[in-house]
């Protein structure tokens, strides 16, 4: 009997289907447990980063890819993501601007730049330079801007600078249009 089932031509198909169904139901179940935790984590992370930029923030709203920062229901600034193409891959940057559209602070959220060289873009000695700049000043010194590139990591530095300027110009246009 057992050998009869095993030698049936459809049996491999049925067996594989059962395995896949078991696998999918198990994964759906586990995902239903972990998904809310992951979501809460990401939200907490964003809130943490935003309040690190805007110390006075007590609330924020996310709309059209822009975080609007509130203090006592008054707008005190905006934050948005900038994406750059670095030497090793994508660089994700969170840019915070004040009401007058000068930079409050920038944070490199993720990067895959060369450790020890390009990865220095995350250090405060590099990111602090951007504070107070308007979109027009955001360029490397050799391109007529105000930003010192990291020695040996010009491509990474330039990627960050370009991404921030582009994102600022785009979002400020959007905000001013409102």
């Amino acid at each position: 009997m057992a050998s009869k089932i095993l030698s049936n031509k459809i049996y491999p198909l049925v067996f594989l289907t059962i395995i896949v169904l078991a696998s999918v139901s198990l994964l759906v179940y586990i995902n239903s447990i972990t998904a809310p935790i992951v979501e809460a984590q990401q939200e907490a992370e964003i809130k943490n980063m935003l309040s690190g930029m805007f110390a006075d923030m007590d609330d924020y709203k996310y709309e059209d890819e822009i975080y609007t920062i509130y203090q006592d229901s008054e707008i005190i600034g905006y934050a948005f993501l900038a994406k750059g193409k670095g030497y090793g891959g994508e660089i994700n940057i969170l840019v915070g601007v004040n009401e007058d559209f000068t930079i409050e602070d920038v944070v490199i959220i993720s990067n895959t730049e060369t450790p020890g060289l390009g990865s220095k873009i995350t250090e405060s000695s590099f990111t602090n330079q951007f504070r107070g700049m308007a979109a027009g000043d955001v360029a490397l010194k050799k391109d007529g801007g105000d930003v010192d590139a990291i020695t040996g990591a010009t491509i990474s530095s330039k990627a960050v600078v370009e991404a921030i300027r582009k994102a600022m110009e785009e979002k400020i246009n959007l905000l001013e249009g409102d």
Binding site: P12, L13, F15, L16, L26, L27, I30, I33, Q41
Partner: peptide, 28 residues
């Protein structure tokens, strides 16, 4: 119970299931 002709896809599905569980748990 595993048919010889379908064993590799079966192995891959089993392995992929546990890898997915692992990455969900790590992520959370």
């Amino acid at each position: 119970a595993t048919p010889a002709s379908a064993r590799i896809p079966v192995f891959i599905v089993v392995i992929a299931t546990f890898v997915t569980i692992l990455s969900l748990v790590f992520q959370a």
